[in-house]
Design a protein around this nucleic acid. Structure first.
Lengths: 223, 223
DNA sequence: TTCATTTTGTAACATATGTTACAATCTATC
DNA sequence: GATAGATTGTAACATATGTTACAAAATGAA
C-alpha cells in the first residue's frame, strides 16, 4: 500500500514519510478498496473509526426528505472522512459517501486512534486543527447562508474571488453549480448578474466579470 | 475563587471536584472579572487562550456589515468561549462577547492548555467531544437554514417541539424571536401559521399549537 | 384594577425569487 | 469544421416573503 501521499494530509502534516511509516506500524488499521460508484457509507451509519482516503476521490451527498440529492463536497486523497463526527455525541455519517473513482480507504478504530493522539503531539495538534477548521468553515458557511438576497451572496462571492486586489475575475463555477451552492434557481443567477451590470457595478461577459464599483458590491454584502 | 461549578462543564465532565482542583494547580491560569454590560472581546480579537465562564452569563453578538446586531447565543457558567477557535487557522473571535451579568472568566494560555490535553486523558476526550459537538451543531443549523420556505422551517420547528409524541405544543419563543431565528419577517410567521391552520394541519390559539395532521407537517419539511 | 408595554393578528401593497420554456453561445470530440 | 451537449441569456408569469401600518389581545407592574 502506498502511504506516500499521507505527508500532504492535514492529519500528518509536518511529519516525514519515515515518521508516518513508524506511526502506521503502531496504529492498527485496515485498508478497504472500493470500485468507482460504490456506496461506501450511508447517511446514518455509525462512525467509530478514523477514515482517511488514501487514493481516489469520494463525494458526500445529502439526501433530503423528499429523496432529492444535494451534493455536499468532494474529498480526495489524502483527506479524512467525517473527522468531526468521530468524537462528540452524534457518531453517525451525516451524508452518503460514494466513491467517484476507484478508492482506497485507511480505517482505524477510534480507540486506537485515541491512543495515537495521546502519544504523538504533532498528530494531536493536527487533529485539533483539523476539526477546529471544520467548525470555522461551517461558521463561514452559515454567515454566507444568512445573506438574504442573491445579490448579496453574489457580491460576497465575487469579492472573495477578487481577493481584495484584482478587479477582474473569472467565475470558478458554472451558473448551475452556483445556483446549487447558493440554494437558488439557476436563471436567478443570470438575472441578478444582469441587474448588477445594469446598475453599473460590474461588467459581465460570459464567466468573466470586471468589477467597476467595488464599494457598491461591498454595500450589497450589507443586506 | 469558586471552581465548584466546573464539574458540570463539558470540559471537566466526569472529574471530581478534587481532581479539578489538582488540574487547576498544574494549569497556569488567571481570573478576569467583568461588570455587567462590559464588552469582553471584540469580533476579530485574537484568540490564544482557553476561556471558561466561571460565573455569570455572556452573550455572543454578530455585527453585520450594516452595523446591525444579531444575537448568536448566550453562554453561561460553566461554558467555554469560542473553544472551536483556539486551534485551527482562524484564531479570532467571530463575535462580540459581552457580559450580560457580572462575570468571572478563567483564562489559560493555549500552550499550557495543550500540555493539559496531553497529560489528562479525560480532558482530552472531553475537549475533542466539545469541539466535535460544535461542528455537529453547526451542521444541523445549516440543514435548517437550507429549508427554503417558512412553512418548512416552522413545520420542522413544531415537530421538534412535539418530540415525536405529543400532538399539542406551546411555542417556546415569541413570533419576534422566531422571526430572528429563522431570519424572516415577523408578520410572515403569523401569516404562515394562519395558512397552516387554514390548510387543516394545525390548530393555533396564541402560542399553543395542536397538531392535527402530522404527516402533512412532515411533508412540509420536504421542501 | 388600571395602565403601559409587549405580543399577536391582519391587511394592502411592493419586491425578490421561482418556474418554465426556449434561444443563443460556448466547448469538446469526432 | 461539423455536430452534440453543456452553458448562458432571456422572457412571461406565479408565488413567497418583505414592508408598513394598525388594531386586538395578552402580559406585567404599580
Amino acid at each position: 500500500m502506498d502511504y506516500s501521499l499521507l505527508s500532504e494530509s492535514p492529519l500528518f502534516r509536518g511529519l516525514t514519510a519515515i515518521e508516518i511509516e513508524k506511526i502506521l506500524l503502531q496504529l492498527p488499521h485496515r485498508i478497504r478498496k472500493y470500485k468507482a460508484g460504490t456506496l461506501i457509507y450511508q447517511s446514518g451509519d455509525t462512525i467509530n473509526s478514523l477514515v482517511i482516503v488514501l487514493g481516489g476521490i469520494v463525494k458526500g451527498e445529502m439526501v433530503d426528505y423528499a429523496g432529492r440529492i444535494i451534493k455536499i463536497e468532494d474529498i480526495k486523497a489524502p483527506g479524512a472522512l467525517a473527522a468531526a463526527f468521530i468524537f462528540g455525541s452524534i457518531n453517525r455519517f451525516p451524508v452518503n459517501v460514494i466513491a467517484i473513482s476507484d478508492t482506497d480507504l485507511l480505517v482505524a478504530e477510534k480507540s486506537d486512534f485515541l491512543k495515537l493522539l495521546k502519544n504523538n503531539d504533532k498528530i494531536l495538534v493536527n487533529f485539533l486543527d483539523l476539526i477546529s477548521n471544520r467548525s470555522q468553515f461551517l461558521s463561514e458557511k452559515i454567515k454566507f447562508l444568512n445573506f438574504k438576497t442573491i445579490k448579496g451572496k453574489l457580491a460576497q462571492y465575487i469579492l472573495k474571488l477578487a481577493d481584495d486586489q484584482k478587479n477582474e475575475i473569472k467565475l470558478d463555477r458554472t451558473q448551475n453549480d452556483l445556483s446549487d451552492y447558493f440554494g437558488v434557481a439557476r436563471p436567478s443567477i443570470a438575472r441578478v448578474l444582469k441587474e448588477m451590470e445594469q446598475e453599473g457595478y460590474i461588467k459581465v461577459s460570459g464567466r468573466n466579470i470586471l468589477i467597476i464599483d467595488k464599494n457598491a458590491l461591498l454595500n450589497l454584502t450589507q443586506d
